[in-house]
Amino acid sequence: MTDLIRLNRRLLLGTALAAPALISRPARAAGEVIVRTPGGTYDDVMRRHVYEPFTRETGIVVRPVAATASKLIAMFRANNVELDLIDTGDGQLLTLERMGALAPIAYDKWKWSKAEDIIPEVRNERRVANFVYCTVLAYNKDHFAGGAPNSWAEFWDAGKFPGPRMLADMASGSPNLEFALLADGVPKDRIYPIDVDRALKSLDRIRPQIRRFWDTGAMSAQMLSDKEVVAGSIWNGRLQVLIDRGAPLAYTWNEHMIQVQALGVFKDAQNAQGAQLLIDYMLQPEVQAKYSKDLIYGPTNNRAFPLLTEEERARAPGSPTSRQTGFFQNSVWWEDNRDRVNRTWSRWVQR
């Protein structure tokens, strides 16, 4: 599942996705839930493990479509909501929630899943995560045969661990300000609110070793694969695909950043009841275990982890061990500060 995260993040910039156009109101079929999804491989996985079994169980047809963040906002403002369920990055759902566009998640109506089994950090009143992914510190095993960096402070130590590096650009969704603070000695539980000036001063120290700030998952994977860089931040799904293909790459779970893909229901949805039912079905442990395994990301139902193999659990973000060694990105802080950081980053990166 290699294109999912890039597509989600590009929504922030209003990038259109390649998938069928949204269905107009007159074309709505009875017993149908229309879902905004990232498209591509993601739809194939969800169709196999969620949509088709859900239809067999309930008789409700699931129709995935594409929509940019701006399209979702526009249809709400125009009072012309053309879909029911939104499956996207947590930050984008938070924007819609603050506009008053989302209905409460009907936790009390669930029959397949239990609200108390969902990881508390991703269970909110009007949005709930269906999986988590993460950004990790990856490195080339051949280059660091004598010992690799195991923390962001060591990544910043180019004297002890020499070689060209990469980090994320603002265009990827957010630059790696959190890692810059960790490298500067800030504890994981004190990262937020982010001291942007301190983070940029920390980045000043490592910038001479940064070959490029990547803006897409494809770019980060290509730079590591081509040995253009020997270490850097990368989304775990992108990296795992390279490892599975035999690339001499590895990563540390220490200080990884856990990020969230979530679900929300438009409060004016034509089939809000069906959308709520689909959330319930999607989050049950047996179903989550299946699609999380294929996506190479982590389930959000704690009861799904025992259904994975030991190897699958070891590479799934969001597990109890992952939550101890990593930290959740604070989407509320980023939505509150994105415009300010974007302006500041643009000035800094062009210096």
Results as ranks from 00 to 15, higher is better:
A106N: 09
A218K: 15
G264K: 08
Y291E: 03
A145P: 05
A250M: 14
E121R: 03
S233P: 10
A27L: 15
G217Y: 03
A218C: 10
G173H: 00
S319G: 06
D204C: 14
V81I: 12
T41R: 10
E311Y: 13
G14R: 14
R211D: 05
V81C: 15
Q284C: 05
R198V: 09
V35A: 01
E255D: 06
V35D: 02
R165L: 04
F213Y: 05
G237H: 03
E121I: 01
G91I: 02
P149C: 02
F54Y: 10
E125Y: 14
A67H: 06
L200W: 02
V341E: 00
R338G: 02
Y42P: 00
A19C: 14
D117M: 07
T321R: 10
T135W: 06
I206G: 09
A153R: 07
T37G: 02
L83D: 02
G14Y: 05
G31P: 15
L85K: 00
P285Y: 12
E57N: 13
E312F: 04
F327K: 02
L277V: 05
T135A: 13
V132T: 10
L200C: 06
I258Y: 08
K188R: 14
Y192R: 08
I119M: 12
Y139N: 06
E255S: 01
I279P: 00
E116A: 12
V260T: 15
P164A: 10
G146W: 08
F161D: 00
M46K: 07
W253R: 04
R6K: 13
V287R: 03
L93V: 13
D108Q: 12
Y107K: 08
E312P: 07
A74W: 10
A275C: 13
A21V: 11
K293W: 07
I234N: 00
A247L: 14
D204Y: 12
I105G: 01
T325K: 12
A262T: 13
V61W: 08
L263R: 00
G91K: 04
L295F: 10
